[in-house]
């Protein structure tokens, strides 16, 4: 049984106004526990709406969202329980921090779950490690931290609820390269240690290639492709037509191939690409 599944889900904004717009159109898809799925699509393709449908912030106009086989809207009053199981980290989540200390802010979700002090503390400590928040930051005000640290505190705030599905909307936007790598590495570790499903919305194809198992491509409110990283990125021309792309290193390999070099183009991450280029250089016999 898939962990989370949508069946013909449709959502419209501004119903019965001149601005009515279908943001998600008849979308059916299944996600399994333990995988990391990247969601890509140009701006306005419906990605953000789609992820909000998964945790019950938006209610589909038609169709169903099934979590562990049960319709999440079966008992609308219990929708909060769904949100604890399907954690959603919004874009620029550091703007939601509000408590006096990082410890209290990370504990906001667990406290809402109705846990006792001891359990809350336990959850906070665990989440701080999972998100990579250093222990000495825990008693500081979240407003004194650097951008990358704030981002990790905000992510810890969602991880603290121990969600089975962790959704992150552009978690690396606006971070410097080092902070970006750290965040990605923490997300991957969360999936590996807890066996949770991770959905990663991103505009950076490098981020997607670095940690995802599968990729879902959205365009104009519909799902256009869903497959492994190789299956999706090897359809570069179609992606390009949708305003998307593939990782920079893969584009380099592709150009080399087009120029007639015998190179493997099914490579999407930097270390393997480097190895491939070194191999090519050796094969073609260029001396240092």
């Amino acid at each position: 049984m898939p962990l989370i599944e949508t069946q013909n889900v449709t959502f419209k904004y501004g119903v019965r106004t001149p601005m009515e717009k279908t943001a998600v159109d008849d979308l059916s898809v299944c996600f399994e526990a333990g995988e990391i799925v990247g969601i890509i699509g140009h701006t306005g393709s419906g990605k953000s709406t789609f992820v909000q449908l998964l945790n019950g912030l938006l209610r589909p106009a038609s169709g169903r969202v099934l979590l562990e086989g049960r319709d999440i809207w079966e008992k609308p009053k219990k929708i909060r329980d769904v949100r604890f199981k399907v954690g959603l980290v919004f874009q620029y989540p550091e703007y939601q921090l509000f408590e006096e200390t990082c410890r209290r802010d990370i504990g906001y979700g667990p406290r809402n779950m109705g846990l006792n002090d001891e359990q809350v503390n336990e959850a906070v400590e665990r989440a701080a490690v999972q998100a990579g928040v250093k222990p000495e930051l825990m008693e500081k005000s979240p407003f004194e931290l650097s951008g990358g640290e704030k981002r990790r505190v905000a992510i810890a705030g969602v991880m603290a609820m121990g969600p089975r599905v962790l959704i992150l909307d552009e978690p690396t936007a606006g971070l410097d390269p080092q902070a970006r790598d750290k965040v990605l590495q923490r997300i991957k570790a969360y999936s590996e240690t807890t066996g949770a499903l991770v959905l990663l919305v991103s505009h950076r194809m490098e981020d997607i290639a670095a940690i995802c198992d599968r990729i879902m491509v959205m365009s104009k409110a519909r799902m256009i492709m869903f497959g492994t990283v190789d299956e999706v990125f090897s359809r570069y021309d179609e992606l390009k037509a949708m305003g998307l792309s593939m990782p920079q290193v893969s584009r380099v390999l592709r150009k080399l191939k087009l120029a007639g070099y015998p190179v493997n183009t099914h490579i999407y991450d930097e270390p393997s690409a480097c190895a491939e280029i070194v191999r090519l250089v050796k094969q073609c016999g260029i001396k240092r």
Binding site: Q52, R83, F90, P93, Q96, Y108, N112, V158
Partner: peptide
Amino acid sequence: DKIMNAQKARGAD
């Protein structure tokens, strides 16, 4: 709206 949604996602009632 954005902040409200973010806090609701953390179980704000």
